[in-house]
Design a binder for these strands. Structure first.
Lengths: 252, 252
DNA sequence: ATCTGAGTTTTGATATATCAAAAATGTAGA
DNA sequence: TCTACATTTTTGATATATCAAAACTCAGAT
C-alpha cells in the first residue's frame, strides 16, 4: 500500500481519543479500502483481542457502523458486511448523483488554484495506478480525488452525507473493481470535470461529475451481469471471507 | 399529543429488540419531536436510571446519535443537543434540497391513489393543527407528510439519508417554529405538490417541493434575524433546558 | 454420504465495577 | 460581593462478569 492519499475526515464529532472512536475509524477505513469482503463477518471479541482492548468499545464502534448501514446484523446478531444487491447499489448511486452534482457545483464556485493542481495530481496518480494494475491504490486515489471536490464545496454536511454513501459501496466496489474490464479512454471524465471546475462553471462541473459516476457504475454493473450468467452454469464458491483485523495490534 | 402520525421507519437494520435499539429509537423520536431543546445536555446515567437499565446500552444509543450529528460531544465528553448556527442550518437545507427534489420526482412516478389521498389528509390535519396553534402536532404531521413522499420514492437509501437530515434540524425547528409568524396563505405549497404528484409530473413535483422547503426556511431564518437584533439590546436568558426523559419508564 | 439433534463452545447483550476527567460545591481571601 | 482554589461529587470510558441465544461439533440414524 503505497498511498499517502488524503484521509477521509468523516470520523468527526466524536471524542477524538476514545478507544471506540479509534476502532470506528479503523474499521471504517478498512471497509472503504476493501479489507473486508461483502459477506465477511465481524467478531466483536476477536477485534477486541486483536486490538488488546475490551469488547465494549468495539461493540460500540461496530454498532455505529451498523446504524450507518456500513454493516448489517445477521438475524439481529452478528455483524457482517452487507452483500449489496444490484438494486441497492443503484439506489445508492441515484442518491449520490444529485449530491455529487451539488458538491461539484459548489466546488466550481469555491475552488482554488492549489486545489485544481491537487486534483490534476490525484488524477495523474489514479491513471498511473490503474495502468500498473494497482487496483487498491487506484480506488484509493480515485476516492481522494472525489473527496477533495466534496470538500471544496465548503458544505460540511454535504461532505459527510456523500462520504457516508461511499462507505456503503466501499466493500462492494473494492470487490468488483479489480475484475472490471476498463476501456482505456484517452479523455477521462475526470479531466473534463477538472476543466469545468477550473472554468468555474457549476452546471458543467455538476453534469460531468454525474456522468463520471454513471459511467463507472455501468462498468461495474455490466461486469456483474456477465458474472451472473457465468454462475448460472456452474455454481461454485460462496463469497465468504473472515478476515481478521490488520495486524497493527500489540499497541502497548 | 393527539397524533397517530406515521412513525419514522428510520431505526432499521439494528436488532429490533435490544435495549440500545429501544433507547436509540426513543431518543431519536424525542429529538425529532422537540422534547430536547438545542443546548440541552444528556446524562447517560440519568437516562439509564429513568429507563431502569444499565448505562451501557444508553451510551451506545447516545454515541450513535453523536455519530449521526444529532448530538454533539461537549469537550469530547458530555453529549448535548447541538445549537445550530444559521450557516449550519442553511448547509443542511441545501443538502436536503436536491434529495427532496429527487424523492419527489421518483414519488411522482410511483405514487398511488391511496397515497395521494393520505397526503391530502395529512395536509388537512396540518392546516388544522396550525390554525389551532397546536405547533408540535403541526410539525409532526408536516413531517409525516414529507416522509410519506420520501417513501413513495421507493428508494430506501434516499429515505434514510433525508430522514437523517431531518433529525439534525429537529430540535432547532421545534424550538423556532412556535415563534414564527406565518402568513396564512390560501394556496399552500403542499397542495401544489400534491397536484403535481397526482399529475405524475416529476419535474413539477421536484420544483415545488424545493420551493416549499425554501419558503419554510425563510420564515425561520427571518424570524431568527429579528430575535438576534432583539438580543442585541438586552441579553437575558441562555437557552439551556435539562429535560429528563419522558416518564414512560417503569417498564417491568 | 447426508441429515438430524444433543451437547459444547462461542458470541452478543447487558449489568456492574473501576478509574480518571470534569463538574459542582464550598470556603477563604481580595 | 466576587474570585480563586481545594474538595467532593458526578459522569463518561473502559474492563470485566454473567447469561442467554446462536453457532458449531460430532455421533447416530437414514
Amino acid at each position: 500500500m503505497s498511498a499517502d492519499v488524503i484521509e477521509p475526515e468523516a470520523a468527526d464529532q466524536v471524542a477524538r481519543d476514545s478507544l471506540s472512536e479509534r476502532i470506528y475509524a479503523q474499521l471504517r477505513l478498512e471497509l472503504m479500502m476493501g479489507m473486508y469482503e461483502p459477506g465477511a463477518r465481524l467478531n466483536i471479541r476477536g477485534i477486541a483481542a486483536t486490538s488488546d482492548i475490551s469488547p465494549t468499545p468495539v461493540r460500540e464502534a461496530v454498532m455505529q457502523l451498523v446504524r450507518e448501514g456500513a454493516l448489517e446484523l445477521k438475524l439481529g446478531h452478528q455483524a457482517r458486511v452487507p452483500v449489496l444487491s444490484v438494486r441497492e447499489y443503484i439506489e445508492i448511486r441515484e442518491t449520490r448523483a444529485p449530491l455529487e452534482r451539488l458538491a461539484s457545483e459548489l466546488a466550481a464556485v469555491h475552488i482554488t488554484k492549489d486545489e485544481i493542481a491537487s486534483l490534476r495530481d490525484l488524477h495523474r496518480r489514479f491513471v498511473e495506478a490503474e495502468r500498473e494494475g494497482r487496483w487498491k491504490d487506484a480506488l484509493a486515489v480515485n476516492q481522494a480525488f472525489h473527496f477533495l471536490i466534496y470538500r471544496c464545496s465548503q458544505n460540511a454536511t454535504l461532505v459527510r452525507v456523500i462520504e457516508n454513501l461511499w462507505l456503503l459501496i466501499g466493500p462492494f466496489i473494492n470487490h468488483q473493481y479489480p475484475l472490471v474490464q476498463r476501456a482505456h479512454i484517452e479523455l477521462h471524465p475526470h479531466l473534463l470535470v477538472i476543466d469545468a471546475l477550473e472554468r468555474q462553471s457549476p452546471s458543467e462541473a455538476g453534469e460531468l461529475i454525474v456522468r463520471d459516476l454513471r459511467e463507472g457504475s455501468y462498468l461495474i454493473l455490466s461486469h456483474l451481469e456477465d458474472e451472473k450468467s457465468k454462475k448460472r452454469r456452474g455454481r461454485k464458491s460462496r463469497s465468504e471471507g473472515a478476515h481478521s483485523l490488520s495486524g497493527k495490534s500489540r499497541t502497548s
